[in-house]
Amino acid sequence: MFRNNYDNDSVTFSPQGRIFQVEYAAEAVKQGSVVVGIASKTHVVLVAIKRNAEELSSYQKKLFPIDEHVGIAIAGLTSDARVLSNFMKQQCLGHRLTYGRSMPVRTLVDMIGSKAQINTQHYGKRPYGVGLLVAGVDDHGPHLFEFQPSGMTEEMVAFAIGARSQMARTYLEKHLDKFAECDREELIRHGLRALKESLVQDRELTVDNTSVGIAGAADKAGKVEPFKVYDGQEVAAWIESVADDKEAAPAGGSGEGETMEVDP
């Protein structure tokens, strides 16, 4: 039987110059549930579908705050994500201590990129089995980055990773031009609609399985909206606002503003 000998470790190139172990790690990202991120000129949002192992179990977290100004969304091996998340938290904290200000998002993303690359070049290591969307704000405004197990990191306007994320990406590409000018609420709604695109037939967004994370760049008064994750009843109004029958409803309904002000 034909056997592919070039896929046993991440230090072997195939004759075509590919590294299969890294490509397989990228497949692990597609096993995770979908996460979507979008950046506008003022805000960056992450939205995610959470999975539960069974009806009575809790849901696996998908969004993690890293620092005041940065948060991540994960798809793939959660335990690998936790390693990266801890690393990012430490780096951000160290940067604050040394420089007295928050770390630029690109610097942070480059750090995990370098860290992941090493795992693809040394025997005995394996690539991380997780993909990340890194959302953050710094002096240059809001940023959204994608991180892959290969160590590849790229800044995106909007992106989706995870199971069936192609449907979400198609939605994002279709509405790409609008995102820059979107306000906070519009951006969240776009995120949730993209998320809905990649849902399987009889599933829908609920307060239990949906997470929303937001960060806002400094406004005219110089006030930054720190990265915060919203779960449960906090997201009810947003989910309601993108319900199928409201598809054509004008932006900015009156009811949804209220719930958002409520602190958990």
Binding site: A39, L144, E155, M156, V157, A158, F159, R169, L172, L176
Partner: peptide
Amino acid sequence: TSKLLKPNAN
């Protein structure tokens, strides 16, 4: 590779 890449950012 993707339309969603931020132009001139990478």
